[in-house]
């Protein structure tokens, strides 16, 4: 097993058999032992960083923003917004489909020129109606 893989396996969740192989590797590799010990010490050092102070007003500010947006007229805001968006999308799609269908209805079915001329009773010059 390579050093990098062994070190990674020992710092995260892994298959028990792989961890055992990694442990054996590290036990016999001075550099890996030093490196894994240093990684653990560094993690401990990072952990000692103080906890950030949470602004006391933040929760109130968040809820005020949500209430304000919810009260605004116009686009629906809240858990139903996704449903509203889908409904709106569906309505737009239905409108486009209806428009296309009506447009086709007005112009009639697609016909070739000779068919259309024959339907209108117009005689075509010789050779053109074949």
């Amino acid at each position: 097993m390579k050093c990098d893989k062994a070190r990674m396996l020992l710092t995260g969740p892994a298959d028990a058999a792989e961890v055992e192989t990694a442990r054996k590797h590290v036990a016999g590799c001075d550099e890996c032992r030093r490196e894994t010990a240093q990684l653990a010490a560094d993690a401990e050092f990072l952990r000692r960083d103080g906890k950030p102070e949470v602004p006391s007003y933040l929760g109130t500010r968040i809820m005020a923003e949500i209430r304000q947006r919810r009260a605004q007229p116009g686009p629906c805001f809240g858990p139903d917004r996704a449903v509203a968006r889908l409904t709106a999308l569906g309505l737009v799609a239905a409108g486009i489909w209806l428009g296309v269908a009506l447009g086709r209805g007005m112009t009639g079915p697609q016909q070739s020129l000779p068919e259309r001329m024959a339907q209108l009773g117009v005689d075509l010059p010789n050779g053109e109606d074949k």
Binding site: L58, R61, I62, E65, R69, G78, A82
Partner: peptide, 18 residues
């Protein structure tokens, strides 16, 4: 951090159905 926290909860409220 404040701004993104607020935005996270606004998005959570909006996306609760998900």
């Amino acid at each position: 951090a404040e701004e993104m926290t607020q935005e996270s909860f606004v998005k959570a409220w909006e996306g609760l159905k998900g």
